[in-house]
Design a protein around this nucleic acid. Structure first.
Length: 945
DNA sequence: GACATCACG
DNA sequence: GACGTACGTGATGTCC
């Protein structure tokens, strides 16, 4: 064929390169190149697929022309049409990114044409080439299963699903879309695509779309004659969403007329050059594959040397055992020359374990004292930066002068900044959010905007993804458990109590082994955990739910929320007055003075002195005086009623109005919480220092505390919360048709439950019946028991059990879900969320009361955890989605997100954020129940909620 | 540092 | 038939 022009009798193969890469990446464990640890799993898989492709494409149907087409990174013209196009797509995993260019190299090494064009997707290039081939009278086979390419089929163009080895022609397209290839675009425009975030027409899927297109002939015709549609909802959608549908069509329509700087003739099939192929495979250190290719091409198999048996190389195979911990080997870096040596090593390696030492635990106020680095197990350094000189005999309280033998602070950070920010160098930390926040606050000559640590892996998050529910994820726990090594304790260095010192007062000689060891441990943990992700099938959880969330949380925490000190202070004084009055009253009622805040003293007053009936409880033998007990007593006695009032005020004052003031950052005037990403076993976040996830709202008096959380002048606080998200998820996972329908119809779900369980028509519903049903609904989520429901509703246990029995009779699917969940936990030792998060249940086979706890936790975890995953996904996507707006995401409260927005942008932010939240499950999971989000705004959190 | 209590979803 | 019990968190004050 050589030298002839593409035309009749020619057969062009177009390979969707990106599909090959992702399939290869997900099919193989995260392999790394032995000599330097470069991730090459996807490249290996890609090459294997190329070889297989070459081997199978012989004979009469073989191609005469071939090209592999890639997506060019960055935005395409479709993003100009619609800024949210493909906005759902998570960024490529960190260990895949460096492999993209290598797949191009591989294609060229096999002497196959390799094409990509900036601003266009691979699909457009494929479309243009397919049309050129067809117009020239030749054949074209597109090797891909991407349905977006189906519009190209026909007139000699076919698709080939390489996985299933199935050809797709016009009939195949008809099967998939219900219309011929020429109307595929019309159907796609209506149906939309959650994967690419093409909006389409809400409520219309492929089936309905095909029906409509077949009835009206074309999309244009359909839109013009939309008035004729009988179904009112559908008609309204098509009329109202016309713009959106037409935009969708533009998004899915491939560009068949690109101007290319090459022709079909340039794609002619060429024999690979043996030297080039083998050189490439050798460089990648693919032993099996290079031997196979060598044999095929009649060459000697190339020799790929095993890495020399240094201790470091041995560590690759057995990270925990190979290199003993040796504090003597840690280096103290004291000048630029020494630091440069480390930086060169890091650049050669492509990754570094990184840890900071600071003067405190609060990332918003602590000062940086030093930095440690580690590139090989056992080989770590500490760079002291702001250690203070040791106290001499004359200055008892320590000098403020810097200790000798430390690098200049600015010089060190200016040298580290390019490394810490280099996208090609992976930073590895334990709880890296802390270190990233510290580094972001460092400013100086050459780093005026702070230092943005990215990209990073976090061993704490790796452990959480792998071992959530099994144990804690602090460094000491992980080191002992997985490295069999007890880290040097910090206590002896800092001391305890009043005499405790900050890290900058620790002598450098003592700081080096402690600090460097932390980086050493972190690197070893990473080497232990990272390869386990794939084996445990939690790569997606880590890469989409944990890793990208960490920097998002860091940013929210750094923003903080404005809290008005005067408001809190005034409330505090008012509470104090009321409490004093109540205290007098209580003492009078008791006939003696005692500490109202002491449950022990209160118990003695109530049950011993006053002789009220009610028993001891608890292992300590003390009387129980919890709110539920006092409430019962309060119906007959005055004193417990007053104590309840006092307790409420005491709680509000001490935990909120007083403590919160101490958390206002003097520099920012705002309160900066810290989210604990690994805090809850279910996947929920926890908030600490201060906890902003438990600010009062249920009582009128408490809710007023939210008035102190305010927006900056000219701004509003915006609150968006998922409506009934856990019940919706329950309806989906347990597959309860009635519940799903109720949500679809927008019914009051508790009233609906009441109506089903108690046989009361909706229009005869009373608030009390509804309240009972609501308690049952929540009980179900928690792993209901007769006892628990009875206590919650304060009804006899038998009656509560009757409710539950009736509920399960009415919704047998729920009991089935609960049983099968517990069964799953017993068999696998974990349960999981819809997004693949594993929650381990080590207690599930325990005996006694612990078994009950474990069972209920196992039932609750997939529901609470899936809801947690959903809002995490929304949070991960939010920064990009609102990047064009002046809005800031400030807080998360499990099913609620709070933003601060300039007044003018409130509406658009609401709309955008709501869309992100409501579609957060897509495309990974399609929920049978839609998620809805309620929104509110105001000058403070009380108004916004 | 354990325990009881209570704030939130 | 008895065991015990609603799920998930964090902060505070008392008491030893």
């Amino acid at each position: 064929m050589s030298g002839t022009q593409f035309g009749k009798g020619c057969h062009l193969h177009l390979i969707d390169g990106s599909a090959f890469i992702f399939r290869a990446y997900h099919a193989l464990p995260p392999l790394t190149r032995k000599s330097d640890g470069l991730p090459i799993g996807a490249v290996a898989g890609f090459c294997n697929m190329l070889v297989k492709y070459i081997e199978t494409n012989t004979g009469p149907d073989a191609p005469t022309h071939v090209a592999v087409i890639f997506d060019h990174s960055g935005k395409t013209f479709r993003n100009d049409l619609y800024d949210l196009y493909k906005a759902n797509r998570p960024p490529a995993p960190e260990d895949l990114r460096p492999q993209f260019p290598l797949t191009r190299d591989a294609t060229r090494a096999f002497n196959i044409a390799c094409k990509e064009i900036e601003g266009f997707e691979a699909d457009d290039i494929i479309a243009t080439l397919a049309h050129q081939a067809r117009d020239a009278g030749g054949r074209c086979t597109i090797i891909s299963s991407d349905k977006d390419l189906m519009q190209l089929v026909g007139g000699g163009v076919e698709m080939l699903d390489a996985m299933k080895n199935k050809r797709i022609d016009s009939d195949g397209v008809m099967e998939k879309f219900g219309v011929g290839p020429d109307r595929v675009v019309d159907v796609q425009a209506l149906a939309g695509d959650s994967v690419d975030n093409v909006p389409g027409a809400p409520g219309i899927g492929i089936k309905t779309a095909a029906l409509l297109i077949n009835e009206f002939g074309s999309l244009d015709e359909l839109l013009d004659r939309a008035e004729e549609i009988k179904q009112p909802k559908r008609r309204q959608t098509l009329i109202e969403k016309r713009d959106q549908i037409e935009l969708s069509k533009k998004l899915v329509q491939l560009d068949c007329d690109m101007v290319l700087d090459f022709s079909l003739d340039d794609l002619e099939l060429r024999e690979p050059d043996p030297d080039t192929v083998l050189n490439f495979l050798t460089e990648m250190e693919f032993r099996t594959l290079s031997a196979r290719m060598a044999k095929q091409m009649g060459r000697e198999a190339p020799v790929i040397p095993e890495p020399t048996a240094t201790p470091a190389a041995a560590a690759e195979d057995d990270p925990a055992e190979a290199v003993p911990f040796d504090a003597e080997k840690y280096e103290c870096v004291r000048d630029a020359e020494a630091l440069q040596v480390w930086i060169d090593r890091i650049r050669g390696r492509g990754w570094v374990a990184f840890d900071t030492e600071t003067t405190g635990l609060n990332e918003m106020t602590a000062d940086l004292v030093g930095v440690s680095l580690c590139v090989e197990p056992g080989e770590a350094c500490y760079i002291p930066l702001t250690h203070k000189a040791e106290a001499g005999s004359d200055d008892l309280f320590g000098s403020d002068a810097l200790a000798e033998g430390q690098m200049d602070f600015d010089t060190a950070l200016s040298m580290l900044k390019p490394v810490l920010e280099d996208p090609a160098i992976l930073k590895i930390g334990q709880n890296m959010k802390y270190d990233a926040k510290i580094m972001a606050r460092q400013r100086g000559a050459g780093f005026a905007d702070g230092i943005t640590v990215a990209p990073y892996d976090d061993t704490m998050l790796l452990s959480y993804s792998l071992h959530g529910g099994e144990h804690g994820h602090g460094m000491d726990t992980l080191s002992e458990r997985y490295l069999d090594h007890t880290p040097i304790p910090i206590k002896p260095l800092l001391g305890t109590g009043k005499s405790a010192i900050t890290f900058d007062r620790v002598p450098i000689a003592d700081a080096v082994p402690y600090a460097a060891e932390d980086a050493d441990i972190t690197l070893r943990l990473w080497k232990t955990f990272k390869p386990q992700l794939h084996r445990e099938k939690v790569t997606t959880v880590y890469e989409t739910l944990e890793r990208p969330l960490s920097p998002v949380l860091a940013r929210m925490e750094r923003h903080g929320i404005k809290v008005d000190r005067d408001t809190l202070s005034r409330m505090s004084n008012a509470f104090a007055q009321k409490m004093a009055a109540l205290e007098d009253e209580i003492h009078t009622l008791a006939g003696e003075s005692f500490n109202v805040g002491s449950p022990k003293q209160l118990g003695e007053i109530l049950f011993d002195k006053m002789g009220i009936e009610g028993g001891k409880k608890g292992k300590t033998g003390a009387y129980a005086t919890g709110a539920d007990i006092l409430e019962e007593l309060a119906t007959e006695h005055e004193l417990p009623a007053r104590v309840l009032d006092w307790r409420q005020l005491s709680k509000l004052k001490s935990t909120y109005t007083d403590a919160l003031q101490d958390h206002i950052n003097p520099e920012t005037g705002r309160v900066h919480t810290s989210y604990v990403q690994t805090g809850a076993n279910t996947g929920r976040l926890a908030s600490a220092d201060p906890n902003l996830q438990n600010i009062p709202v249920r009582s009128e008096e408490g809710r007023r505390i939210r008035e102190a959380f305010v927006a900056e002048t000219g701004n509003k606080l915006l609150s968006l919360d998922y409506s009934q998200i856990e019940l919706r998820i329950l309806a989906h996972v347990a597959d309860i048709g009635t519940l799903k329908q109720a949500f679809a119809d927008g019914l009051d779900i508790h009233a609906m439950t009441a109506s089903e369980v108690f046989d009361v028509p909706l229009d005869e519903m009373t608030p009390d019946i509804r309240r009972k049903a609501k308690a049952i609904n929540f009980g179900v989520i928690y792993g209901i028991s007769g006892f628990g429901l009875a206590r919650n509703l304060r009804i006899p246990r038998a009656e509560a059990q009757g409710f539950i029995d009736r509920y399960f009779e009415r919704f047998p699917g729920i009991r089935k879900y609960m049983d099968s969940t517990v069964e799953f936990a017993k068999e696998h030792g974990h349960v999981q969320t819809l997004f693949g998060r594993k929650i381990h249940t080590p207690e599930i086979n325990a005996k006694g009361p612990r078994a009950g706890f474990a069972k209920r936790a196992a039932i609750n975890a997939p529901i609470q955890g899936t809801a947690a995953d959903v809002i995490r996904r929304a949070m991960v996507r939010m920064p990009d989605a609102i990047a064009h707006l002046p809005a800031k995401m400030l807080l998360q409260v499990h099913d609620e997100l709070i933003f601060e927005v300039p007044e003018a942008a409130v509406e658009e932010t609401t709309e955008t954020a709501r869309r992100v939240m409501e579609s957060a499950a897509d495309p990974a999971v399609h929920l049978d129940v839609k998620l809805t989000v309620d929104a509110g705004t105001g000058d403070n959190w009380a108004e916004a909620h």
